[in-house]
């Protein structure tokens, strides 16, 4: 059903538009002046000052992969994060864990796991969707590189950034 948004009735002065323009100009002028005279507080001069220390634990920095307390890689290459990732930054090549491995019962692991940090928008959906709690957005936010390939975080880099995460779901580990 069509719905007409009611428009406010304008007074003559408002219809003229110019008073409003002047009022707007005065507002911006106030900001300009205060900033110029140093009355507006400058919070932080970024590259020299950083807020790393006061960053909350849930900060959404670069996505990383984590291991559990036994050193097992938590990711089982279910590719759900690859699916959910809005900019399609994640690329996974799944593989089978060799039977000789201690964790053979997990069966599946990512052979390759790349996150293209040029594409990543730090949305955190990968962390949210992961059924194994293997991918977390950690606190690294200044991700830079001089080449495109440098900006693609491979598995080694992701584990290096991610480290160990314990105290989360633990279904693969033997009960006591």
């Amino acid at each position: 059903m069509a719905y007409t948004v009611p428009r406010p009735k304008l007074t003559l002065a408002e219809k003229f538009y110019l008073p409003q323009v002047v009022a707007g100009l005065l507002i911006t002028w106030k900001h300009f002046k205060n900033m110029l005279l140093g009355r507006t507080k400058i919070i932080m001069q970024y590259p020299e000052e950083k807020w790393d220390a006061s960053m909350p634990s849930y900060y959404r920095g670069a996505p990383t992969l984590v291991r559990d307390e036994h050193g097992r890689e938590r990711c089982v290459a279910c590719q759900l994060c690859e699916f959910i990732c809005p900019p399609r930054a994640i690329r996974i090549k799944p593989g089978e864990i060799p039977p000789a491995s201690k964790w053979a019962k997990v069966e599946k692991y990512p052979e390759e796991f790349d996150i293209d940090m040029i594409r990543c928008i730090y949305c955190g959906l990968c962390e949210e969707v992961c059924p194994e709690q293997a991918i977390f957005l950690r606190k690294d936010y200044a991700i830079t590189g001089l080449s495109r390939s440098e900006m693609i975080h491979n598995k080694a880099k992701l584990y290096e950034l991610g480290g160990v995460m314990d105290g989360v779901v633990n279904k693969w580990n033997p009960k006591k």
Binding site: H31, F32, N34, M35, L36, I42
Partner: peptide, 10 residues
């Protein structure tokens, strides 16, 4: 610069 100052930036 002016736009920054107007928007409370540097």
């Amino acid at each position: 610069r002016v736009s920054a100052l107007i928007q409370d930036r540097l």
